[in-house]
């Protein structure tokens, strides 16, 4: 029942994105071709090329046929054609995706683990000086928008101190291999990652701390203490484990916003991920790439959320009966 409802939700969400993607350019004034590619590009296109595009996306057909065509081409992995980068949108996105995965994945893992540990320790020491210090620090951190955090790290560590490269994911045209290549990538990776982790960690921390405080009031904590378990086991095995559930849900939901958060960081560090792709296509008004990216990100987020739903069942035995 619950699972069915979830799938319906994902279905509806997917449909909304698809329709928006399809409708937005076609609702703009002018021919769809103008809307999809923009005035500037059309001027440069040859009539034959235009005709081939119209044929490829069935732009001379009525709207519903266009939609059917659109869906079919999506299933073929055809997300459109980028005139600027003269290539398939799908291929372009695919080339950028790994960098974003790297950034989002690592930052999510680090910020979640960091947030959970800090949250558990802070909640456990509630009201003590350590807790107050961590809480205040985290609250302050939560005020920094990702792009400002990125800029500050960039200005301080890269520009002023010169410790890290200014931009990119690796040194361009450098002829390096093996371990040196890895080191080079890591060097480029640290600042964007740090910025993202700093921005993300406070949310996870606050949630963990709150649930921790509530969990600590439960009777089973008293049972655990009465059993003579050492503090650490009470804190992690009993209190922490129970505080984990909402955090995991949140991390799932966060997957979507993490891509967004990474977007600004990628722009600032010119990190060649999907976010940067969005930005550069925005600057060039490369709308097909923009749309394709949105679709890919949406699918990715939906999949991630679904995955979290599955994990959740493993973590909380009570949920199993709900299905």
């Amino acid at each position: 029942m619950n699972l069915k409802r979830k799938i319906t939700n994902y279905g509806i969400a997917f449909l909304i994105i698809l329709s928006l993607n399809f409708l937005l350019p076609r609702l703009m004034p002018g021919t769809p071709l103008t809307a999809i590619y923009g005035e500037e590009v059309l001027v440069q296109m040859t009539p034959e090329f235009k005709a081939s595009l119209i044929k490829r996306f069935a732009l001379d057909e009525p709207l519903y046929k266009q939609f059917i065509f659109y869906i079919f081409s999506l299933f073929r992995g055809d997300l459109g054609y980028s005139y600027y980068q003269s290539g398939s949108v799908f291929q372009i996105i695919l080339a950028h995706l790994p960098w974003t995965f790297l950034l989002v994945g690592f930052s999510l893992i680090l910020s979640t683990i960091g947030g959970i540990i800090l949250g558990i320790e802070s909640g456990w020491r509630r009201g003590k000086i350590t807790d107050k210090a961590i809480l205040t620090g985290m609250m302050t951190l939560s005020g920094f928008p990702s792009f400002f955090m990125g800029i500050m790290l960039l200005l301080f560590f890269a520009v002023n101190l010169g410790l890290f490269p200014l931009q990119g994911a690796r040194t361009p045209y450098a002829d390096i291999y093996g371990i040196w290549l890895v080191l080079d990538v890591v060097k480029h990776f640290i600042l964007p990652l740090a910025a993202l982790v700093l921005v993300e960690v406070s949310g996870c921390y606050l949630l963990t701390r709150n649930t921790m405080i509530m969990t600590l009031r439960k009777s089973f904590i008293l049972t655990a203490k009465a059993k003579g378990l050492p503090d650490k086991k009470v804190r992690y095995r009993h209190a922490g484990r129970n505080s984990l559930l909402p955090v995991v849900t949140r991390t799932g939901i966060k997957l979507g916003t993490a891509v967004t958060g990474a977007l600004f960081i990628e722009i600032i560090f010119s990190y060649p991920g999907v976010g940067n792709l969005i930005y550069s296509s925005l600057l060039m008004r490369d709308y097909p790439v923009l749309q394709g990216t949105l679709l890919m990100v949406a699918i990715f987020v939906l999949a991630a959320n679904f995955f979290v739903d599955l994990i959740y069942k493993k973590l909380d035995p009570r949920v199993q009966n709900a299905y």
Partner: peptide, 24 residues
Amino acid sequence: RKIRWNSISIVFQNKEDALNPVHT
């Protein structure tokens, strides 16, 4: 801690999760 449960143990009233819900 060594006295607890080894020498003195307690049966709590079973209200509001005296047992941890996530362990068997």
